[in-house]
Amino acid sequence: MSVSKLANAPSDASTNGAVVGCLPWIEDAGRVAPNDARALSKVFFVRLRELDEGTREFQYARNTLIEMNVTLVRYAARRFRNRGNGEMEDVLQVGTVGLIKAIDRFDIDREVEFATFAVPYIVGEIKRFFRDTSWSVHVPRRLQELSGDIKTAREELGGQLDRTPTVTDLSGHLDLSEDEISEGLVAAAGYTAGSLDTPAGDDGRTTDDITYARALGERDPGMELVENLHALAPLPDRLDERERHIIEMRFGQEMTQIQIATELGFSQMHVSRLLSRILTKLRTGLLTDR
């Protein structure tokens, strides 16, 4: 049945001899030709405005509009096909979300073609998807958008200047300060992350023995000891002379408790109690002074 016949079909006729309310039944709306979909969409939008949300006919009209215009999603998604085939299914899904938003917000009285109205919604949803999911490092949205502007400006200026544009060139072209341009360039590095298994040699070597993972330094356990000793340094001055002497013998001369006891004429038990008291005093000072 032609579009004109479908649009004007009475309540007892359609392609299958069935209707939903006053709308013709379309068996496979996704296979309607674009030109036919454009004309049919107007009919469905007019009826959709008259229907109560939640009714069977409203759901049919809305779902049919989505299926008939899904070609707009595929059209808008083409410009993002170089982002990787693995993400195209996700792109089509989020693009469909944009299509649904456009359908829910479209006003037939504005006399604007639905395709003209819907494509910006679809593209915006897809761009938002890439902005929120494609960056390897979380970067504020402002810097993500700035990085995109810088990328476009570099391509334009590169063709005009026949060289790689400098920060000054980009600053003048985008009417931004050089600090803002530098910030955007740094942020752009967060779009992709390199593998730690990437060869780290500067001479083009590709041996698996020299990778960033092997070249990266490890945490030095001695650094924490240095920090603790630095914090502890002023605390012995708070001890009396005998306490400092005991600490010197035990940790400076590495004498045993028995040797210290013999040196001072004390019992080993008494030396042990003195050391415990002195260390508690130092530990308390170390924690409270930080």
Rank of each mutant, 00 (worst) to 15 (best):
A188F: 03
A188N: 07
A189W: 03
A189D: 05
G190Y: 03
G190I: 00
G190C: 01
Y191S: 00
Y191F: 13
Y191I: 00
A193M: 08
A193W: 02
A193I: 02
A193G: 06
G194S: 11
G194K: 08
G194D: 13
S195K: 06
S195H: 10
L196Q: 05
L196S: 08
L196W: 09
L196F: 04
D197Q: 11
D197C: 02
D197N: 10
D197R: 05
D197W: 06
T198W: 12
T198R: 14
T198L: 13
P199W: 08
A200D: 04
A200L: 01
G201K: 09
G201F: 04
D202H: 13
D202R: 14
D202A: 14
D202N: 11
D202F: 12
D203F: 07
G204Y: 10
G204P: 02
R205S: 15
R205L: 08
T206M: 13
T206D: 14
T206F: 10
T206R: 13
T206P: 00
T206H: 10
D208E: 14
D208K: 12
D208V: 02
D208Y: 09
D208C: 03
D209Q: 09
D209H: 05
D209E: 14
D209R: 06
I210C: 07
I210N: 10
I210Q: 09
I210E: 11
T211F: 11
T211K: 04
Y212H: 14
Y212R: 06
Y212S: 04
Y212F: 15
Y212M: 06
Y212I: 02
A213G: 08
A213E: 15
A213N: 13
R214L: 08
R214M: 10
R214C: 04
R214F: 08
A215T: 02
A215Q: 15
L216Q: 10
L216K: 03
L216P: 00
L216D: 13
L216E: 15
G217W: 04
G217T: 07
E218Y: 06
E218S: 09
R219G: 02
R219F: 11
R219P: 00
D220W: 05
P221C: 03
P221L: 06
P221E: 15
P221M: 05
G222F: 05
G222A: 09
G222E: 13
M223N: 08
M223S: 12
E224W: 04
E224S: 11
E224L: 07
E224V: 05
